[in-house]
């Protein structure tokens, strides 16, 4: 095996391509989400047809992003997959427990504002990030 062989590693090449695909579809999804959220109010004055089309495009791009994520996960090796699957399990658990407790806070009058889904998503993102970093450190 030569150094040149290493640089052309099929695993790395496939992994890089999958990462780029996931990044691109995520960016497109974020843009379509922003359009679906703001355009009806600021651009086309809540025109129903345009709003529905934008939502459908956002959903379709979202599903394509999920496919890209699936391909990305399948392309990883078994240890990288384990790190991500473990992180996902922690994220799902934390999301469920924190989400339900957070929702309960308003019901039992411990907070005055209505719980926002975005807060839960932030918690889940931070949990996922922390769990992935912890996973990589564990196997380092």
């Amino acid at each position: 095996m030569t150094k040149q062989d290493c640089e052309q590693s099929s695993y790395q090449t496939k992994n890089n391509a999958n990462t780029k695909s996931l990044r691109n579809w995520t960016m497109v999804w974020v843009v379509t989400m922003a359009i679906a959220a703001f355009a009806p109010r600021f651009i086309w004055d809540f025109n129903t047809s345009l709003t529905i089309i934008t939502l459908l495009v956002n959903l379709a791009v979202g599903f394509r992003m999920l496919v890209a994520n699936r391909d990305y996960l399948r392309g990883l090796d078994e240890m990288q997959q384990k790190i991500l699957f473990d992180a996902m399990a922690v994220t799902l658990g934390v999301g469920l427990v924190v989400g339900l407790s957070y929702e309960l806070l308003e019901d039992i009058k411990l907070i005055a504002f209505e719980p926002e889904i975005s807060h839960l998503i932030i918690v889940m993102c931070l949990t996922n990030l922390t769990a992935i970093i912890a996973g990589h450190r564990k196997y380092r």
Binding site: M1, D5, C6, S9, S10, Y11, Q12, N15, L76, D77, E78, M79, Q80, K82, H136, K138, Y139, R140
Partner: peptide
Amino acid sequence: TQAQLAEALEVSRQTINAIEKGKF
């Protein structure tokens, strides 16, 4: 190198390192 072995086994270099260290 670890990178060469990783390439031959189609895994990441980090995975080879973890296996060698008995962590995975």
